[in-house]
Design a protein around this nucleic acid. Structure first.
Lengths: 209, 209
DNA sequence: GTAGTCATGTAAGAGGTTACATGATTAG
DNA sequence: CTAATCATGTAACCTCTTACATGACTAC
């Protein structure tokens, strides 16, 4: 139930509309737990039924309305319980690594393309994650400001550093992925060079028999 | 549809029973794409319907039977097509990193425990993944031997090195995760020390007003 | 007026988890 | 004869994806 806890975590900083949550689950928290709106709106309704959040209907212009969700005491207790308890690790499931296991079923050039895309993908992610950590440290993040406003000043540094630290985990992973893919590109070059030599030799050997 | 391709990939080396596949999806290929038997048996039936694999019923002892699944030409074409095409990256979703974002909602000691568990988890995985890469290079892996038997000797080195390389991606990731968690433990020690100092100062300041 | 943003959903289907269920075979 | 392994599933439930659907508000 990570989506539920992601939402509770964000709402623990400030009350928000479903629409706001959709943005957060796409941009900021979404960098580590993404979810589409088709999941978020129904989940908020379920959480309301369970008493984890409470909705206030607020006007929007003349004719429209919006629902602002706030975390309840029960919701706050739940997110704290979740944060304090050890979490099971999900089974490993990485489609790109699976593909890498079967690179021998495709031409070298296809493997190269996938690895180049891997470098490109994680280079983009790396920039996003680094920017996020920097924005947190610079207190440029609106939701962080709202959270800090609720907490004692002595806690502020710890809150910021812990959140930035989380994104640095993704930064470290991105760097590991880029390094791996680059080593893969070198490996493929080496294998291709050796194969060209080997098949040349094999041809000559067959010819000389 | 990664499960389907994981199965096709394994069957491209040799025909196997559902039971065998269950082991592979738990032990070896399962290190990068795990699946329970409740998913594998029905999936094999669906793949059979779609003509990607064909089953042969073989006797087992006096009264029992087993179904041996072999990849068809259509299945082989499909796995090759999949291997050659670029793959979309799934959305980011990492429950532990999500939790790390909300470490500020729990006591320092709870965060420490989770990070120690993180080190322990990836240390175990690291050993498994390294062992797997070593076993492939030593040709100690049965399914690899069966695959090599179908391929030209000039290709053997490339097949082995590419498969070991895939697991080395997980090795690199595990090392990054361990390093991250260890830096987190140091960070928490530092924050706790500073907070102890800060809250002492805050108390003294309040008292002196 | 119109494009972009704000705002909230539904529905069908695919993929994955957990628990339940059964029985033959083989090695000791 | 008994425990471990071989062998194959079903069912209920939860999560996530993809596509569809609607309409008010705001800045230009």
């Amino acid at each position: 139930m990570s989506l539920r806890h992601a939402i509770l975590g964000v709402l623990s900083a400030a009350p928000l509309t479903g629409y706001d949550l959709v943005q957060y689950m796409h941009d900021s928290v979404g960098y580590v737990w993404s979810a589409p709106k088709s999941q978020i709106y129904p989940e908020l309704r379920k959480m309301e039924e369970h008493g984890l959040v409470s909705a206030t209907v607020a006007p929007r212009g003349q004719h429209a309305q919006k629902r602002i969700y706030a975390i309840t005491d029960e919701g706050a207790a739940e997110i704290e319980r979740w944060a304090a308890n050890r979490m099971e690790y999900p089974p490993d499931r990485d489609p790109l690594r699976l593909k890498a296991i079967f690179f021998d079923l495709a031409p070298f050039e296809a493997a190269r393309e996938q690895l180049r895309a891997h470098v490109a993908h994680y280079t983009r992610r790396l920039a996003q994650w680094e920017e996020r950590a920097a924005a947190l440290r610079a207190r440029r993040v609106h939701i962080l400001q709202r959270r800090l406003a609720q907490r004692a000043p002595e806690e502020h540094e710890a809150i910021i550093e812990l959140k930035a630290f989380a994104f640095e985990g993704n930064v470290a992973r991105a760097k590991a992925e880029i390094g791996w893919a680059e080593r893969g590109l070198e490996l493929i070059d080496a294998l291709e060079a050796r194969r060209a030599g080997a098949s040349g030799r094999a041809r000559r050997e067959r010819a000389s028999r």
